[in-house]
Structure formats: structure tokens, C-alpha cells
Simulated scan of single mutants.
Amino acid sequence: MTVDIAELVRTRTRHPEAIAEAAARRVRRPLLGDSGRLMIVAADHPARGALGVGGRGLAMANRADLLERLCLALSRPGVDGVLATADILDDLLLLGALDGKVVMGSMNRGGLQGASFELDDRFTGHRAEDIERLRFDAGKLLLRVAYDDPGSLTTLESTARAVDAMAARRLPVFVEPFLSRRTPEGKVTNDLSAEAVTKSIAIASGLGGTSAYTWLKLPVTDNPDDMAEVMATSTLPAVLLGGEVGGSAEEQAGAYEKWRGALQLPTVQGLVVGRSLLYPADGDVAAAVDTAVGLL
């Protein structure tokens, strides 16, 4: 699909109500299809100022290019849906790309990459009422906990209330937890050791008044052999996140192998992967997506 930016802008300018109308007529589907597995393409990075992929600092900055990559990914067999912020989902609605797909709204994007307040991750994206009103299927939120940063407490409390709000509407919410820290240079990094991921799972699983609608969105640990023990921490269903994958074909192949092993674990129900599929090293989006689907 070739995206006509001028047409999108024309619709947004003259008929902004077209977005709500497209959401109202969108054909919906169950969260899990016949396969019982979930393959979601993620594109909520730009709203946190995270536009880079590999060595390309502004790879995701061209919206027409991003939308074309997303439409291609969504058209591939076995791809269940998309995770994105309101601006991107609105464009995809206008393009008619979301019929029969799982639509997941990104809820907190306030922890801007590189900001002094990065770990005070306010809810600046979709609210539970927005997801319900637009007839979307789920929400996702980021929960980075740094023991030495008071902003983490604000994020924890806000996350718990978001879990409650989603559960009240019987809407699934995917919680993406990390134990994080700042380097001496001030950069926020996520600890992917088995102990840290285990603690993050335990913290995230207990948030809110019920866990009935809570899913986890989790990384593969530094040592993939630890994943079986780590995933025994909770009975909540989980999906694996793509995370930072290097720019070379070898690094991408390594990521696929990590996912393949973890996908065999009983609580792991699928994948939510973004940049490594939309911007693969060889540029072949369809092949990258098909390979990831094949892991399921």
C-alpha cells in the first residue's frame, strides 16, 4: 500500500469525525484467534521520542514510510494486530487497515527517552475510557521501576489505577515491567538479569484490585536458559517483547532463537515486536514478519 499523506491530512482537516466513524464500523475479532497465539506488531515508540533503529537515529520519523511498513506487516498471514498510540491508530483507521485485527492502545508515553523525568512515566496516551469508546481491544502500559528514583512510585500508583479502570470495563491490559537504573551518564537502562525480571513480574502481577484482565509483556532474560524459572513467578498470561535488536542479520537471527525457546513455556502466549520487524537489517519487512509468525 502507498500512503497518500495529502489525503490523510485532507480528511483530518475537513472531516475529523471520520476517525470516530471508522472506529465505530471497524470489524472486531476475539483477542485470541483459532491458533490460541498472539502476534502483535508494535509501533508506539515515536510518542516517547524513541525514533531510532540500530544506527539510524530518526528511522521512524517518516510517518508515511512507517504507515506503509505497518500496513504491509498487518497484511501478512498470522499477524493478529497492532500496538500504537492514538495518532498512528487514527491513521490506520482512516486507511482501513484495522478490520479484523486486534487493536491495542498505548496508555503511558510520558517517560520521554533521555529526559530527566524519564522514570516518572505519566499516562499521556489512551485512557481506559478512550479504548472502550473507540471499541479497541486492549491497552498496554510501561512500568519501569527504579529503586532510587521517586518517580517510579507515581508510575506504580498510576499503573494500579489503570489496571482497575481496564478491569472494570473487562478490557485486557498488557503490563510491561522492568527494573531499571540510571548509568553514571544518566541513561536509563533495563536490568534483564533473571533476578530482576523475576522481581518485575512479581511486582506487576500484584497491581490493582484484580488481575483477571492483566497480561504481562516481558523481555527474554540475558541468559535465555533462565526463562523457565523466571516465568514460573506468575500464572498471568504473557507475551514476549522484541526489545532492542541489533542492526545486523546475525543479531536478528539471534533474537529469533531467543524467542523460539521462550515461546514453548506454558504462560507465554505470543509476541509483541516492533522495530526489529518493521525495520529489519535487510529491509524485507514481509520476510521478517513471516519469520516471527513462524515461531508461533
Rank of each mutant, 00 (worst) to 15 (best):
R169P: 05
L171C: 06
P172I: 13
V173P: 01
V173T: 04
F174E: 00
V175M: 12
E176R: 06
E176A: 13
F178M: 10
L179R: 14
S180Y: 09
R182N: 10
T183N: 12
P184H: 14
E185K: 13
E185I: 03
E185R: 14
G186E: 08
K187Y: 12
V188N: 03
N190C: 15
D191E: 12
L192F: 15
L192T: 09
S193G: 14
A194G: 07
A194V: 07
E195P: 00
E195G: 09
V197S: 00
I201H: 01
A202T: 11
A204M: 08
S205F: 07
S205T: 12
L207P: 00
T210R: 09
T210M: 08
S211F: 11
S211G: 13
L216D: 05
L218W: 06
P219L: 09
N223I: 10
P224E: 02
D225S: 15
D225I: 04
M227C: 10
M227K: 05
A228V: 06
E229Q: 14
V230K: 02
V230E: 02
V230H: 03
M231V: 11
S234M: 07
T235Y: 14
L236S: 08
P237V: 13
P237K: 06
A238W: 09
V239K: 03
V239M: 12
L241D: 00
L241I: 15
G242R: 07
E244K: 15
V245Q: 05
G247Q: 09
G247I: 00
S248L: 10
A249S: 12
E250Y: 03
E251V: 00
A253I: 01
A255M: 11
A255K: 08
E257R: 10
K258M: 08
R260L: 02
L263S: 06
L263T: 08
Q264Y: 00
Q264H: 09
Q264L: 15
P266K: 04
P266L: 02
T267W: 07
T267M: 14
Q269T: 11
G270Y: 08
L271G: 09
L271Q: 10
V272T: 14
V273R: 07
R275Y: 04
L277G: 04
L277D: 04
L278N: 05
P280S: 10
A281M: 01
D282I: 03
V285R: 01
V285D: 03
T291W: 05
A292C: 07
V293F: 04
G294L: 07
G294Y: 04
G294P: 02
L295I: 14
